[in-house]
Design a protein around this nucleic acid. Structure first.
Lengths: 156, 156
DNA sequence: TTGGCTGCAAATCCTTTGCAGCCGT
DNA sequence: ACGGCTGCAAAGGATTTGCAGCCAA
């Protein structure tokens, strides 16, 4: 069993998004699809401003309000994830690119690294179960400091 | 070895705070101490408005700006922790009351519960070490949904 | 005395919203 | 054609900041 979902094509994305929109009384527009694509074309965590910049670069006209509104939709539909790392602006990430992961934030260089650990996931579920709940989601960030002068996150 | 620190007295608090202020060119004022005390008198997670309300109730005059400025100081000094749970306003918590813990947020009733797990802590350190970092801090929240109609968090 | 505090109000930053016209269905 | 979108600009909410007077050290 591979925890990584297979890479998703633009067609798949579009199909999924249309499905969601159809079942939620929403309309499929060029602006919405453009934002979704930008998110999946990029491997980074994008802020609202990043998305606006990218759109401008590609000469895709879209307003800030629409970016906000669309990102909300994408998060609700499960196509995007929203992260608020301390000391960072709010960022969004493609949700279907690969399997679940959490984040390490280097407090020296601010770089964000991803990690995944089976045991961690299992324990979290156990803890919630003991409290009579089932996991909806979790947020888990490790803030670390370099042990050497040249921050490994900076060069890795 | 007990993971819970012993309860801290107001005198201890004051001493610690003064130490921090002294080494950071800060002044010990009645407003600052009042806010620190409010935080440690209360077992809840307090928002800025909560603190302002409590101060008003006790007829301790303090402005919103000072509350913000003081909370920053307290967080920097390690006397307070700041939490931003999704769907909640930003809240602050006394840091020296008991040992480290993380939080469960019930998405049904919004109640916040605390948890601690040794394995979880150990694994997190291991993960960071593998990346060449040492833990500065971490944020870890589990968002759960009730498995029964009457939310156990609501009544517990 | 001096530099750091405080309160106040204004300023900022991020995000949301009302509205008029546009467009997917 | 209808109802949901979009852009714009204004509104909102949370937090920060400039400033004049105050106060701890």
């Amino acid at each position: 069993m591979n925890r990584f979902a297979s890479k998703i094509s633009n067609d798949d994305l579009e199909t999924r998004f249309k499905e969601y929109l159809y079942t939620h009384n929403g309309k499929f527009t060029s602006e919405r699809m453009a934002i979704l694509k930008l998110l999946y074309e990029d491997d980074e965590h994008l802020s609202v401003d990043d998305i606006l910049d990218l759109a401008r670069q590609k000469e895709i006209p879209v307003s800030r309000a629409t970016v906000y509104r669309t990102l909300d939709l994408l998060v609700q539909s499960g196509l995007a994830k929203k992260h608020q790392f301390e000391g960072h602006e709010t960022v969004f990430e493609a949700a279907l690119k690969e399997g679940h992961h959490d984040h390490i934030v280097c407090v020296d260089c601010n770089k964000i690294t991803e990690f995944f650990n089976d045991d961690l996931e299992r324990i979290q579920n156990d803890i919630l179960a003991k409290h009579g709940l089932v996991m909806v989601k979790h947020t888990h960030q490790l803030y670390g400091k370099c042990t050497v002068n040249n921050c490994p996150n900076r060069t890795s």
